[in-house]
Simulated assay, not measured.
Amino acid sequence: MPAITTNDGVRLHVEQTGSGEPILFIHEFAGDHRSWEPQVRHFSGSYRCVTYAARGYPPSDVPADPAAYSQERAVADAVAVLDALDITETHVVGLSMGGFAALHLVLRHPDRVRGAVVAGAGYGAHPDRQGAFRAECEATAAAFEAEGATEVAKRYALGPARVQFQNKNPRGWAEFAAQLAEHSSAGSALTMRGVQSARPSLYALQAQLAAIETPVLVLVGDEDEGCLEADLMLKRTIPTAGLQILPRTGHTANLEEPELFNAAVDRFLATVERGGWRRRDPRSLSTSTTGMK
């Protein structure tokens, strides 16, 4: 099935590999369905791996209407992919923009998610940083419109949480940067404004996050500075969350450290499957250091 159609008529490119329990992978802003290749290669021997290109990312459609892009629509698109593939319940793994989508999928459709890996999700989440984040999103969107993806990719791929990938794996980073340069300039600008900039703060969702019962693994690189604080908040707020921090790692964690990333996800999925991923023991929340008072 190379494409599915959403309820608002947008065609999404979908690929699936392997068989078994499904895993839905949702890509980041600077990636696309191809970004999950190290994970598909690893997991497709035991799982049914589903990847797709979000709207605005060819070969998926690039709607021209700005109203076609939002956090809500990103979640609806994930559900549309599941429905088209007759998947009633799935594990979901999302990075950055995809991590936000995975988390919102858990919030809105908990019956569809067996377990969620929320990786590198946190940019612009803190209320004190939202204004600056949105200003940067607008500048980035304007650059995609004025200069095009080929030029913007040269700078975007060298962000402060991307250089770790370049230093560790120059060939892998070059492939990532080349794929980013192939993105739709219009689609990137529309996604940056409608999804990235306009999404709600995670801190404004704390009451909803505290009610989550779905197993969640929050995963982040220790040099992904824009995510660390928010991801610690997610760990402390979601009663079923575990926090995995990858050392000396930036934002593109699944490509930068595929073995560590895959091992963490593999261990999480196996624990969920055997019913071992439980809510945090409330006794661990005591303010006492020793438990003596």
Rank of each mutant, 00 (worst) to 15 (best):
V50G: 06
A161C: 10
E225A: 15
G242C: 08
P58R: 03
S188F: 04
A68D: 10
I212K: 01
T289C: 11
Y47K: 07
R73I: 15
N254F: 10
A174C: 05
G194P: 07
P110N: 06
T237D: 07
P59S: 12
R11K: 14
Q71F: 09
E147N: 12
G221A: 09
R278Q: 15
I87L: 12
V92S: 00
A30V: 13
S46R: 14
S35L: 14
A78W: 02
A178T: 11
T287C: 14
D111K: 15
D281K: 06
G99K: 01
R199N: 06
P282E: 08
V93Q: 05
F261H: 04
A132R: 11
Q206S: 12
A174S: 13
H91A: 12
L107P: 01
G31K: 01
V106E: 01
D65P: 06
P215F: 06
A74N: 08
L217Q: 02
A211V: 05
L24Q: 00
A80T: 05
E259H: 09
P160V: 10
H33G: 11
D224P: 10
V62T: 10
R171M: 14
S96A: 15
D231G: 05
G148K: 03
P215L: 04
A174I: 07
V106L: 02
R280Q: 13
D231Y: 00
T249D: 03
V220E: 02
R134M: 08
P282H: 04
A121M: 09
C227W: 01
G148A: 06
C49I: 07
E259L: 13
A76W: 02
V93S: 02
L12V: 08
A186G: 03
L105W: 00
R193Y: 07
G122D: 02
V118H: 00
Y156W: 13
G275M: 11
I245T: 07
R73P: 06
A102T: 07
L255W: 01
L107K: 02
G56E: 00
D128Q: 14
C137V: 03
G148T: 03
G115I: 04
V113G: 01
M97I: 09
A80S: 13
N167D: 15
A67Y: 08
A101V: 10
E15D: 11
A181P: 08
G18L: 05
V265H: 00
R108Q: 09
Q196W: 10
K235S: 06
D231S: 12
D32T: 05
K235E: 09
L228Y: 04
T240W: 11
A135P: 11
D111G: 15
M192G: 01
T289K: 12
P160D: 09
A80N: 04
E138A: 14
G291L: 15
G20I: 14
F144P: 01
P200H: 09
E151H: 09
E37K: 15
P282L: 10
G276K: 06
D128H: 11
V75M: 02
D32Y: 01
G131V: 13
A132P: 08
D128G: 12
F261E: 02
F261Y: 14
A189G: 04
A121I: 03
E229P: 04
F29I: 09
P59V: 11
C137S: 05
I26L: 07
F100R: 03
P200N: 06
V106S: 00
F261K: 02
P215A: 03
Y52D: 00
G94Y: 02
G221Q: 00
P63W: 00
P2S: 15
G226W: 01
